[in-house]
Design a protein around this nucleic acid. Structure first.
Length: 272
DNA sequence: AGTGCGGCCTGTCCGC
DNA sequence: TGCGGACAGGCCGCAC
């Protein structure tokens, strides 16, 4: 389940293999993603040289001279760099071959992923235009959150996962960040103090930084570009630890609750 | 405007 | 053992 650290891990994995190389072939086996893969993707990409692989929120941006390929991994998507000609397995929907020497393969069983082409500045694309700041952006601050949360009556966990507030914090890292900041996930966003939001900004950055360092979190099906799992799973302090003792205070146990249709994990003692 | 929920998908796991 | 159903989750779009 790619959240920001998994997407960033993927970016760092694939970029060195592909940057500066020229697309020699494109194979589309399945066009039915969250939106249909552009019908003329083969014609668009073939012959273009990849200039950079960037990331905005959970979107990967493959930059070419004539435009940008926007890739989203959805829930179950992954990208791998393989030898061209490697036998395709089920759900290997798209191959982009570079210099007949490297194959970028998009695999996505659940097909919540996305692959779109734009000739405009991707930041202005409807899917990206209204996104909040990156977690490391200086604009992401306690002042900013307090101000934005003024009208938000819902749970702070939902607020944290709202891409219009800040990008990249999915279900796993929302639970982890709130736990480290000692904030109860159901607390109304507008009832979280400035000091607590300050702690939350710090904990979000810490959790994401550490997760990237460990190559992301593999719960079920995430694999990095080299096929290895991410090892942050071993570092999780609350997520998926229902019934176990809190690693933070040692007094409470980890409980679960569905918040905003998603399973949430928290310590009953130290999170308020 | 903010909130909540349905829908998109398929692999995995659980209980009967 | 086999099967059905619940569940997982990012994010859009809709209704209130």
């Amino acid at each position: 389940m790619p959240e920001l650290p998994e997407v960033e891990t993927t970016r760092r994995g694939v970029a060195p293999h592909l940057t500066g190389r020229t697309v020699s072939a494109v194979i589309v086996r399945e066009r039915r993603l969250r939106q249909p893969v552009p019908r003329d993707l083969v014609r668009i990409l073939t012959g273009q040289t990849l200039t950079a692989v960037r990331r905005r929120a959970k979107y990967l941006l493959l930059e070419f001279p004539r435009g940008t390929l926007i890739v989203h991994l959805g829930m179950s998507g992954s990208l791998r760099v393989l030898e061209p000609g490697t036998v395709a397995r089920p759900h290997d929907h798209i191959d982009i071959v570079f210099d007949a020497a490297r194959c970028l393969r998009f695999h996505d069983p659940r097909r919540f992923g996305l692959m779109l082409w734009t000739v405009d500045d991707p930041a202005t694309h409807p899917l990206l235009a209204k996104l909040g700041p990156e977690p490391w952006d200086l604009r992401f601050s306690a002042d900013y959150l307090v101000d934005l949360a003024r009208t938000r009556t819902g749970a702070v966990k939902n607020f944290l996962m709202d891409g219009h507030a800040v990008v990249g914090v999915g279900n796993i890292y929302a639970s982890e960040s709130l736990h480290r900041a000692l904030i109860h996930p159901t607390r109304p966003a507008r009832r979280v103090s400035h000091a607590r939001y300050d702690a939350l900004v710090t904990s979000v950055r810490e959790v994401l930084d550490e997760a990237i360092t460990f190559g992301g979190t593999t719960l079920r099906d995430f694999t990095r570009d080299d096929g290895e799992p991410g090892y942050f799973r071993n570092e999780l302090r609350v997520y998926d630890r229902a019934g176990q003792a809190c690693l933070q205070c040692g007094k409470g146990d980890i409980r679960t609750r569905v918040i905003g249709q998603r399973m949430s994990y928290f310590c009953v003692k130290c999170q308020r």
